[in-house]
């Protein structure tokens, strides 16, 4: 038979377990804003040393690769900079001739991604920058390949990103060809591929071929226009002649991202920031093709007299 001290010990253990369980359940059912607030407070106080430690570790891990990349980029930039003054002057002159406004550029903050061990790491990412660096909630987060997500919550030194894998993620988007627009959301169907996106709300008449790049449209004011979101890989479902839902291969992978850019004052067109964008490649090619076609047709066709408008033709003209 258990002694009184053993019984009280067991009772105390059970009570402690139930209290911890109750607190955990309370945290689960509490509003999201409370949870994010508590998480931010913990990161800024008791967990600040370990977050700092992890940020230093991430920097150390990638420092050699980054040095190599930065050296290569610096060499390229130095080479290009030799022609920069004349290009700037030429650009300014052409813009004045065409009455174009100045190009807008989005300021950004570079951040380290602090990956965690928990299974839900891909849905939210912890970044090593916060409000002290100018980051605020709803700032878009980009990787070199494309869109990662949006800042969900920012504290002084860290911020939490809701990636495209989060069930609540949405972004307004359009195809690079411009013939279809819709909303991109994480794919949650029963027969789908893990880690995919779906392009919803595309009208049935607007067929989108596989391989088409989908960009953010800029609608809604959160994400700037022109960020690659994903590439169409097929049709997921059709809704009775009303709309088609396409499956997208995401442009960027949050699980493997080590460095990201946070756009601290989003706006404007980001298409020029992504050289891999097929639209950027397609535009000059299209222009060259048009000029070539115009030239060849002009050379092939015999010169024709310019037709005159009918009302302007009078009896005197026909007799001439």
């Amino acid at each position: 038979m258990a002694s009184a001290s053993e019984r009280s010990y067991t009772r105390r253990d059970t009570v402690m377990f139930l209290v911890c369980l109750g607190l955990a359940l309370l945290a689960l059912v509490s509003p999201d804003s409370w949870g994010l607030g508590i998480a931010a407070a913990l990161r800024e106080t008791v967990l600040a040393p370990v977050v700092w430690l992890q940020a230093r570790a991430e920097e150390g891990r990638t420092s050699r690769d980054r040095l190599r990349i930065i050296t290569a980029e610096r060499d390229s930039a130095a080479y290009r900079a030799q022609a920069l003054p004349s290009l700037l002057a030429e650009n300014e002159r052409l813009r004045q001739l065409l009455s174009l406004s100045r190009r807008t550029s989005s300021p950004y903050v570079a951040a380290e991604v602090l990956h965690q061990a928990q299974a839900t790491d891909g849905r939210t990412l912890l970044l090593s920058v916060g409000t002290r660096d100018g980051v605020a909630a709803f700032d878009p987060v980009l990787a070199p390949e494309g869109l990662i997500g949006v800042v969900l919550n920012a504290s002084a030194r860290t911020s939490v990103v809701m990636t495209w894998a989060h069930p609540e993620f949405r972004v307004s988007a359009f195809t690079v060809t411009g013939n279809a627009a819709g909303v991109v959301a994480p794919f949650t169907g029963a027969d789908g591929v893990d880690g995919a996106l779906e392009f919803r709300g595309v009208p049935y008449r607007d067929s989108v071929p596989a391989g088409t790049l989908v960009l953010s449209s800029g609608l809604g004011g959160v994400y700037p226009k022109g960020i690659p979101v994903g590439t169409v890989t097929g049709v997921i479902r059709e809704q009775a002649g009303w709309e088609r839902v396409y499956r997208l291969l995401p442009a960027a992978n949050p699980g493997s991202a080590a460095h990201v850019l946070v756009l601290v004052a989003p706006g404007g067109d980001m298409a020029r920031a992504y050289p891999s964008d097929s639209a950027v490649r397609a535009q000059p090619a299209d222009s060259v093709e048009r000029v070539r076609l115009a030239d060849s047709s002009a050379q092939a066709a015999p010169p024709k007299p310019r037709p005159r408008p009918a009302p302007a033709v009078g009896p005197g003209d026909s007799a001439r």
Partner: peptide, 18 residues
């Protein structure tokens, strides 16, 4: 601590670890 660093669903980590 895990929930504070990965707040996909605050409280899930606390419950599971407990």
């Amino acid at each position: 601590a895990a929930d504070a660093l990965t707040p996909a669903r605050f409280g899930a980590g606390a419950l599971a670890h407990t």
